[in-house]
Amino acid sequence: MNTSMTPVLSARGLVKTFGRVVGLDGVDIDLFPGEVLAVIGDNGAGKSTLIKCLTGALVPDAGSMSLDGQPVQFKRPQDAREAGIETVYQTLAVAPALDIASNLYLGRERLRPGPLGSVLRMLDKKGMRRDASQALADLGIGTLQNMAQPVETLSGGQRQAVAVARAAAFGSKVIVLDEPTAALGVRESNQVLKMIGEVRSRGLPVILISHNMPHVFEVADRIHIQRLGRCGGLITPQSHTMSEAVAIMTGATTLDETPGRVGGGA
């Protein structure tokens, strides 16, 4: 990774506490254009807290963030979305009874042109269905044909595809995926990994939070290891093996003790 580039998203010294519990204890993170940065860590290491701070779901107690070199502050998830950061949450965040197209455009509905839209506030259902279908096809999801199908009738993988497609369709700067393969089978997971590759090939950087080491090592360019509220190390799939990554993650070793083959990358 060429570290002389300006990071798209950058955070310095993030601190977040919950009463006496320290979630983040001064974390730095940089995301460069066109890369997949994985964030791994044990339960309670602060992965989710870090991601929530980056996406506006939580407001950090201290620290600074910048997007494309400009300082930013997110007070609500909408702030991050408006700045171009799209998040796919672990809980999927789709409305089960609504159809695929409605979910893709949820909160960003498009109105019909002319007075039907401006006066009667009518939705452009046809246009949204057409473009939703295109957005899914662009990511290699050809199995979903009927955009008027309720999301609750889809499999877990298909729902995840809808959520990722929504992020990819609207995210202009960064896409954040929180455990996108946690609830999926092997084949569905592979499909989501392929979608991540598809998003990266458009030049959109991706932050991927995952427990699944094979998935992380398959798609990540760099890996940020979160450990006890701090960054325990920044490695790449080339510099370290999976077992070394797990060892750093669990505290069995440190990055200093296990510098890896070509250095830590940071």
């Binding site: 998830p77 949450y89 809980t91 999927l92 965040a93 409305a95 089960p96 009874a97 979910n103 909160g107």
Partner: peptide, 10 residues
């Protein structure tokens, strides 16, 4: 349908 999903969707 899902309050939290709606909130997260903005």
């Amino acid at each position: 349908d899902d309050k939290e999903a709606a909130r997260l969707a903005g």
